[in-house]
Design a protein around this nucleic acid. Sequence first.
DNA 1: TTGGTTATTAGCTAATAAGCTAAGTAGCTA
DNA 2: TAGCTACTTAGCTTATTAGCTAATAACCAA
Lengths: 97, 97
Amino acid sequence: MASPDAVFKALADPTRREILQLLRAGPMPSGEIAARFPSAWATISRHLAVLRDAELVTTERNGSSIVYELDTTVFQEAVEHLLNWVQPRGSNAKRRS
Amino acid sequence: MASPDAVFKALADPTRREILQLLRAGPMPSGEIAARFPSAWATISRHLAVLRDAELVTTERNGSSIVYELDTTVFQEAVEHLLNWVQPRGSNAKRRS
DNA sequence: TTGGTTATTAGCTAATAAGCTAAGTAGCTA
DNA sequence: TAGCTACTTAGCTTATTAGCTAATAACCAA
């Protein structure tokens, strides 16, 4: 399981969030992803490695290309994480004036 | 409204997430927050500034102290942001083998 | 105003991370 | 095997940021 730290760090970069948005349309090989961005392929490849370490994407080799796919399970965890924070801890939590 | 970038960047630091967790119990002045962490007060103060810029917390002066309070509205936005990503874009989105 | 308390900002150092080019790895075809 | 394509890793530079101490600001009390 990926650490919350890795997940939030991965989400902190706008390029990586764009990559995730892109993958919502479906799985895509590394080269095709890189072609959509102005950065060098190597740069995108490292962003993908960060996303993979955070377990936000999974990879599968398909012949000579490596296909990236969105993994929504970690998103679910992140969402639950945030939802827990939204609910104040004490059910009767009222601020004192 | 805070940018998603500011919000995710703010959440990317473990110390800042701990501060947020702490504030779930209720509002707390800066000094009291700083006292719970090993870092210097000035360091915590800057973390608080980052959280304030991201609009994850609000501040209110109370005499000589400044009280920080969790603002859950931005959390809601962040959660919705993530939830949108979880749902694949096409309603009939099936991966092709 | 002087002093004490509370908190932020400035200025520095060290670590982290994003960007690049170039080199290396892995698979396919012949 | 060699050569080609697809992709990642290494090495470097630059920018950002977390940490510190010291200086500054804001408030209260005498």
